[in-house]
Design a protein around this nucleic acid. Sequence first.
DNA 1: TTTAGAAATGAGAATTATTCCTAAATAGGA
DNA 2: TCCTATTTAGGAATAATTCTCATTTCTAAA
Lengths: 127, 127
Amino acid sequence: MTRQRQLIYKIIMNTEGHLSADEIFSYAKAEMPSIALGTVYRNLRLMVEDKEIRQIITDYGPDRYDRNMIPHEHLHCDGCGKLVDITFGGLKELLENKGEIAVADYQLNIRGLCPVCNAKQKKIRVQ
Amino acid sequence: MTRQRQLIYKIIMNTEGHLSADEIFSYAKAEMPSIALGTVYRNLRLMVEDKEIRQIITDYGPDRYDRNMIPHEHLHCDGCGKLVDITFGGLKELLENKGEIAVADYQLNIRGLCPVCNAKQKKIRVQ
DNA sequence: TTTAGAAATGAGAATTATTCCTAAATAGGA
DNA sequence: TCCTATTTAGGAATAATTCTCATTTCTAAA
């Protein structure tokens, strides 16, 4: 546990959203100007391996890192553009039973409308 | 519809598995040595946009391209290392109902054991 | 404390995957 | 056939990430 790693960990834990390596690097540099981007990447990888944080791969930019280790899904909203957490329990068990497979981990990325934008859309349709 | 695009399309349609852009480029080059990698990438993007083929993003290498447009999931097997198709119908509707969202598209990547390796594993445990 | 060895860092080069640029080639309709 | 808009080949550029390695920092034994 180096000062660098502590700082990176703290930044992720104090942030609600989903940070990219570069964003984490920027925040870290503000507190420790000497920190290197490679150090951020290396520690992020180690933290993901140690299951301290979660890595979110997307099809529209850099990977993002999430403090929330509870299995959950990610929705990239076409309405507001945000990357939104969707909690949807029991998916692992559902997959294992239906697919006759063993699930070590999974990642579900949805593109569509988040609850807020979806509600707005329905309203518009009804009007 | 250029000769290049026809060739790329044919390669994907004649292949069961999941090809990377580079693999497609290799196969295409065998038939048309002058073809360029950029042409492969451009046409793959266009085909994905036109929903002729499906793009699979993964966390362990380049994107892969799949002729199978029926919604299905991908399992990266820890046992045999293969990228396996898992058919698991009705997930879109399940997500929309439970999450109060609109699903335009989704991608579910599972890491674990495929049906074959999972069956083997169970056998070992029982013995 | 020193000090030896191990581990981690900083800085930047290297790699990987992909997209962009541009002059030349080509498709396909008149 | 001719014209023009589109596409291509080839290579440069970009973005994200990993690697390399000399230097620094940590650890724990002397």
